[in-house]
């Protein structure tokens, strides 16, 4: 059992990389899709608002990128990209734990940001001159995805330095 755990380091690390990419990616896909539906609705009525609604649609896309970044860092640190490394079971589990902040915060923040983005799209459909204010509100939700990304990255670098 102990030997099995000792040899499972790469598996846990890979699981962490997959989780970060998958969960944050799912959140972004749902979010961009939802905001895209609202954006298409506004464009059907007023095509000149394309530039503005596109920015709203892209806001929930960032969580997927953060998940990808964390996944890439884990793969790189455990040697699945680049030079192969010997990863213990404990290290693998630590990388798995490091992926959790961006995995879950990415999923939920992208979904909730999309709701805010849809509301923002509705606002600029009525008042296009309020774009600057309307964009700040969904951007606030981004804060929590960034905080989660920060902790995930710090943890990954911390594990690598151990």
């Amino acid at each position: 059992m102990s030997e099995f755990f000792q040899n499972s380091g790469l598996f846990f690390a890979l699981l962490g990389a997959a989780l970060a990419t998958l969960m944050a990616g799912i959140g972004s896909a749902i979010g961009v899709g939802k905001a895209g539906v609202a954006a298409a609705g506004v464009l059907a009525e007023e095509p000149s608002l394309f530039g503005k609604v596109l920015i709203f649609q892209l806001l929930p896309a960032t969580q997927g990128i953060y998940g990808l970044l964390v996944g890439f860092l884990i793969l790189s640190n455990v040697g699945l990209i680049g030079e192969p490394k010997d990863i213990s079971g404990l290290q693998g589990l630590l990388y798995f734990a490091a992926s959790l902040p961006i995995a879950f915060a990415g999923l939920y923040s992208a979904i909730h940001q999309s709701k805010c983005a849809v509301a923002g799209i509705s606002t600029i459909a009525k008042k296009p001159d309020q774009f600057g204010k309307a964009i700040i509100l969904p951007a606030m939700v981004e804060t929590y995805a960034i905080l989660a990304l920060l902790i995930s990255i710090l943890a990954i670098f911390g594990i690598a330095a151990m």
């Binding site: 539906v37 954006a39 298409a40 609705g41 506004v42 009525e45 849809v118 799209i121 509705s122 459909a125």
Partner: peptide, 12 residues
């Protein structure tokens, strides 16, 4: 969502 987005513009 799509219907409401179109309606928001039409409300103007």
């Amino acid at each position: 969502t799509y219907a409401v987005a179109r309606i928001r513009f039409r409300e103007t």
